[in-house]
Amino acid sequence: MTEVAAFVAWLGAAVIVLADSRRGLAAGLAVVALAAAAIAWSQGEEGGAIVLLAGGVLGSALRFTIGPDGWGLMQPGSTPRLLFTIVVALVALWVALAVTSGPSAGFRFTALTVLVLLGGRLLEAAEPAVMLTAIAGVALVLGIVSGDGIVSYTLAALVAAGVSAMPAPATKRPRGT
């Protein structure tokens, strides 16, 4: 199960990397939430998995309503991003299978691939909706790696939903110190 979940997590993170509009971003976040919940479930944290899925889906629903209109998947000029998703997946697969041990390989692949892909997306993006979706995905993965049981899953779910509800502010010139 974790192997499938790991592939789904990569798929979700790749969609967030390749999307520029709210529908694509929402779909990516929902897929990452599903995969993170599956990983949590496979570790025997059924309650945590449900909470994580709820938070991710709520965040995804909120993202569906906030941000630039459309899907925005693989817009012109997104070839470097497509290559990035493939290269990161291959390197993470090598690290998870051949270099590291410990928790399941699926868990290791998920953590590495989602964090690196979404971190890269944060560095490259300029649109607030994209950055907030990427950071919400990071929060979901933090929920499964931080190891505090239901507390970390609940906090991750709340953060993912809360971040997705944030409106992007207009840049203006404030007065005062």
Partner: peptide, 10 residues
Amino acid sequence: ALAIALAAMQ
């Protein structure tokens, strides 16, 4: 977050 994830691995 990456540091935490790597620390959880052997």
